[in-house]
Design a binder for these strands. Structure first.
Length: 538
RNA sequence: GGCGCCGUAGCCAAGUGGCUAAGGCAGCGGAUUGCAAAUCCGCCAUCCCCGGUUCGAAUCCGGGCGGCGCCUCCA
């Protein structure tokens, strides 16, 4: 098998500070390939962000969430990573929206960019290094177009500029299309183009449209050019990873490659990574796309209220509401349970289901705190893969932890298989829980420093791994807004718990159960543990 | 019509040539508990169908059936 050979080879060529067991699926080659960087130890990532003509929806978050993990994981593996997410803030739809709302294009953009950033933060996406906007890079865009004209790959036509696909022999290589099979956009531009498949690099402005000075007519950039210009400006002529939704492969990314490679005469990107799309329900096609628009009115399954909500979420605050309702951490967890290239069937009931499983982690974190007195969230876990390596020696617990860690890393190394990796996380928690049970760690008298030390070490490993996914970074804010009453409520519950404890001592279980049941009706659960009774809301 | 993806237990979902097919939800049995909750243990799939390659396939090839994406703005 060639796998062994590749691994051996990469171990020799890789920088010692980075891990070369990583394999990445490349849309361009349709294969998983060993990950090699352009520059040793450095990774440049460009992800296509939104066109900000409207509020973000959940589908816009799939890419950012997975790439947030990818960056975290690469950093963990020792790379110096620069991650760009572009914002397209000049576009036909933006102009249309601005006219409808009687606002400037800039105002519409500002509003939706703020919404986008809020939603990113809500899902814990905080690894982005730059969010460049197309309108901030106009000089670079114009220079890029000029160069394409100079090199004979583009032509001006009545103030517009078009890319001449017939000059690019490689055109179609990403989406595997032949020039003949491409219909191209017809319409009003058709007569200004030499080829139907030619696409606009620069569009002359009509009266009243926002425009920028250019060597051609005053106008604005075409849809694809800003990505070529900005990625070049920020990451260079050839960079490591370009990402986006699967729906961008054609024409957007195909056109980006054509522009960039014809302009620079070099490969633009080494790894093209595309995430799968979200679907609202089996009947409704993908979210935010043509399928939704066509079927929106038609088939809304009454069983699945979510489909309806998704459609409505195109309006104000849809995603923000969803995050408020479910919690960003749950949505993130839900998205990461599936491999990033798969289609995810989205529904709130599916989020609920995955959240039920997610509770296992939160319960364990509480248990850890009960036993160790330390918060899981502040554990000094290794932030680098190499630092986290350890020899479990004869420690049975740590041997199991070590094995789990290896399986987790193997999953992540295999094209960022977060779904498989999360499975290992569940295993790891079970191992740790089992240790608590068998060693009776909840019982103060049975604890030994040695056992506690192993337990803490194992839990540090758990934290080390969850950090690479950006999961459980901080305590979940308790649902419901805190009020001044919170303290008093807590004191009252403690009082009831004391009364119940007295009842239990007297074997008055009827009273004890009444207290627990009545509190249960108020959504307050009591759990009796060796160290006393614990209560929780919800 | 062209290009491409997918079909694993009741549901969600890893695994893409070789130990007993991860994990989660739901369910069932047990340990534990005054009873619960939590936790742990056990049970619960031969991988859409047919054929082929191979010592050996869920995993590769061919053919069906079914679902989906792109080809037009889309993360």
């Amino acid at each position: 098998m060639s796998t062994t050979k590749e691994l051996t080879h990469s171990a020799k060529t890789a920088s010692p500070s980075t891990h070369a067991t990583l394999r990445v699926y490349n849309t361009l080659t349709k294969h998983k390939e060993p990950f090699r960087t352009v520059e040793p130890g450095k990774v440049g990532i460009y992800l296509c962000g939104p066109t900000v003509y409207d509020k973000a929806h959940i589908g816009h978050m799939v890419g950012p969430v997975i790439f947030d993990c990818i960056k975290r994981y690469l950093v963990y593996c020792g790379y110096d990573v620069s991650w760009i997410v572009n914002i397209t803030d000049v576009d036909d739809k933006l102009i249309k929206k601005a006219n409808e709302r009687n606002l400037s294009m800039l105002e519409v953009a500002e509003e939706n960019i703020a919404d986008y950033r809020e939603n990113l933060a809500g899902l814990g996406v905080n690894q982005i290094d730059h969010l460049p906007r197309a309108t901030e890079c106009m000089d670079d865009i114009i220079a890029f177009v000029e160069k394409l004209i100079q090199r004979g790959y583009a032509y001006e036509s009545d103030g517009d500029v078009y890319f001449d696909v017939s000059k690019d022999a490689a055109y179609g290589k990403l989406s595997n299309r032949s020039l003949e099979s491409i219909q191209g956009e017809g319409g009003e531009m058709a007569d200004r183009k030499r080829h139907t498949a030619d696409f606009a690099l620069w569009k002359a402005a009509k009266p009243g449209e926002p425009s920028w000075d250019s060597p051609w007519k005053k106008g604005r950039p075409g849809w694809h050019i800003e990505c070529s210009a900005m990625s070049h400006k920020l990451l260079g002529q050839t960079f490591d990873i370009h990402g986006g939704g699967l729906d961008l492969v054609f024409p957007h990314h195909e056109n980006e490659i054509a522009q960039s490679e014809c302009c620079h005469g070099k490969p633009m990107v080494n790894y093209w990574m595309h995430n799968g799309l979200l679907r609202a329900d089996p009947a409704a096609g993908k979210i935010g796309g043509r399928g939704e628009r066509e079927q929106q009115a038609a088939a809304v399954d009454p069983e699945d209220a979510v489909a309806g909500k998704m459609s409505r979420s195109k309006g104000a605050g849809g995603l923000a509401n969803l995050i408020a309702r479910q919690g960003g951490d749950r949505i993130r967890f839900f998205l990461l349970r599936t491999h990033y290239r798969s289609t995810v069937l989205f529904s709130e009931s599916a989020i609920q289901e995955s959240a039920t499983g997610q509770e296992t982690f939160f319960r364990f974190f509480k248990r850890f705190e009960r036993i160790s007195g330390e918060s899981f969230y502040t554990l000094p876990a290794a932030t680098k893969r190499i630092e986290g390596e350890f020899d479990p020696a004869n420690d049975e617990l740590l041997q199991a932890v070590h094995a789990s860690r290896n399986r987790f890393l193997a999953a992540m190394d295999d094209d960022f298989n977060t779904g498989g990796a999360i499975g290992e996380l569940f295993d790891l928690v079970r191992t740790l829980n089992k240790f608590c049970d068998t060693q009776q760690l909840e019982n103060t008298e049975k604890r030994s420093p040695t056992k506690l030390k192993s337990f803490r070490h194992g839990t540090c490993v758990l934290r080390e791994l969850t950090q690479t996914l950006g999961l459980f970074d901080r305590p979940v804010e308790s649902s419901g807004s805190p009020s001044e009453d919170t303290e008093l409520v807590g004191q009252l519950i403690e009082l009831l718990i004391d009364l119940r404890a007295t009842a239990r001592k007297k074997k008055d279980f009827t009273m004890a159960d009444t207290i627990r049941n009545r509190l249960g009706e108020l959504k307050i659960t009591l759990e009796d543990r060796p160290g006393g009774t614990e209560w929780a809301k919800g």
